[in-house]
Structure formats: structure tokens, C-alpha cells
Amino acid sequence: MSEDTSTRRTHMADAPLLEVREITKFFPIKSGLFGRATNSVRAVDGISFNVLRRETLGIVGESGCGKSTTARLIVDLISPDKGDILFDARRLGTDLTLNELRRNVQMVFQDSYASLNPRLTIEDTIAFGPIIHGVPREYARRLAWELLSKVGLDPKRFAGRYPHEISGGQRQRVNIARALAVKPQIIILDESVSALDKSVEAQVLNLLLDLKKELDLTYIFISHDLNVVKFMADRVIVMYLGEIVEVGPVESIYAETAHPYSRSLLASMPSMDPDHRSEHVALAGDPPNPIIPPSGCRFHPRCPIAIPKCKTEKPLLHIQKTRGHLAACHLTAQQQETF
């Protein structure tokens, strides 16, 4: 993947902060008395991408396309079958321990309630990470208070509370504070704002932007909401059935869409302007069975412009008009237009 030329970012580091190389995860389907694996769900099928320092990388796709699995694979909450994770050019397992990786890459989950231990007060939840990394208890507690005020919650009011006593937006702020507590460089936001009300969502998104600027953070922003991704991301990855179909700077993805799947996704995006409702046919049907993915291009059964070659030959990611913009489609953008 080539370097990004996004105009949004001013800082540009040469080496990627995080590299994901050919990562693969198949979930076996066990059946029968002895639980033999008879088949497997190809959740993530050999994907590679880079995350650059201080960028926000958006990952979009339908549910079941492997977005969340990818997030969990990065921090090894699920162990990959194949592939490498490199953080700061150090390979996990050889030059980098899992603990170091996890200190640097934190996650914020979708379900703000399930991701907080109901028996711990908010300060205890936030202080947990620092304490297990050897920060003295009293300092960890003060750190928790610092972080609470940083995410916009008054420590005096919230530190001693339990998760069920506060609202969803406040809980998600606590989850962000908890992720920040171990001083990570990357935060993976796995549908972190999807469950919130629109007004609360906007507040949390603005908080995330402020924190990013203040703490020099890098985000991996996973969402199915294309409007939010457009607002947050510098670069976007579009995933379909465990594979990357398109990747590039957010402007070119949205303006010079190069893959028919991305185009259908964008067409299904609700417009903010009622006078500009999309005339495109939104994507019909469900994604095919990931146990037996279609031959050739995995999108061909649903693709409105598929040609015979799509059924037999797997398209590879290749460079588009803008630098850093890649798509996996046999047809060029112009050919696609003529259909």
C-alpha cells in the first residue's frame, strides 16, 4: 500500500505505526459427537493494511464482513491463524510482546454497559489498567480523576459511581477514559458511538477529535455509519466478506468510488439533504454465505456490472487515479460508468 496523500493531515510520518500483514482467521464450525471441524467461516481472509501515525483509519462494511474480527485480531483477543502484526516496525511475537502491543493499542467497544464491570466503581475501572502495569494505587486513582475530567465528566460526581447509575453517553466516555489510562498510541473504536443517540454521538465524536489532537492519538474507527466515517476518517477501508475491496483517502473513496460494492454502500447512505435523495438502487439481498464464499470476486453474485471474468478470476487491489487509492475490481472506473 502506498503512502497516503490526504490533504487533511499536516503531519506525515514515513513508517506506518501499525502494519497488518496477510492476517487470516477462519472460525471452525464444529459438528458431530467429537466436535470435528467440518467447515469454517472465513471471517478475515488474508487482509493487509497500514495505519499511519496520527491518522484516523475508517473501516466500513456490512455486518459480518469481518470488521470487528479484524479489530480483535489486532490486539490478539482472537488469535489469528496466519499473518503478522507489526507495531512501530516491531513484529508481534519476536521483537514485541503482547503486553507491549496491548499497552499501545486499546479498544473501545460498542456496548458501553457490557464493557464496564458492574461491580466496580468508575474510578476503579479506569485505574485497573495502570495498577496492573505497576502504577501505585493512589497515583492510579488520581490518574483516573484526571482522565475523567479530560473526557468531560466531573470526577467528584462520577468517580465513586457504578456503571448502571450513569447514561450511555457518560458510560462511553468512561470507556474512552479507561482506554486512555494505559497511555496508548492507537485506539480502536469498534462501533463505539453506534449505540448512542445522534446528539450524544456528536458530542462523543467531538470529544474523540479533541482527545486525538491533545494526545497525538491514532484511531482505527470501525463503523457501519458512512456519514460518521466521512466525518471522522482520513482514510477508509471498505471490507466485504472478510476481504478488503477498496482503500484510500476519504475524499477519493467518497468522490471517485472505484468498486461497485463501495458504490452500493454509498448509495444506501441516507443523505443529509432530502432534495438529494439517491436514485441508485441500493444493495439488494444479504451477503453470501461466508462458509462457501463465491468464486472469483466475492461480490460478483450481487454485483450489478459483473462480467464473466469476475466469476473465475479474483481481482487484486490495484492503484486508482489518486495516489493511495486502491480497489479490487476488474473493471476500470470508466468501464464501470458505462454500465
Binding site: 480483535r72 490486539v75 483477543l77 503482547l98 503486553n99 496491548r102 499497552r103 486499546q106 479498544m107 467497544f109 456496548d111 457490557a114 464493557s115 464496564l116 464491570n117 458492574p118 461491580r119 466496580l120 475501572t125 485497573f128 489498567g129 496492573i132 502495569h133 470507556n175 479507561r178 489510562a181 494505559v182
Partner: peptide
Amino acid sequence: KLDYVEAAKASGANNFTIIRVHVLGN
């Protein structure tokens, strides 16, 4: 299977600590 156990793992805690702090109480 709850996210807070995953989150504790993701912050680098070992199994013993996770059981003591996050599992036992629940």
C-alpha cells in the same frame, strides 16, 4: 464472554488478575 473481561484482557491483565477483579465479584 462479556466485553469488560475482553477489555481487561486488552489492557494486558493476566488471567489470575482478571478472575480476581472482574470474574469473582460477578
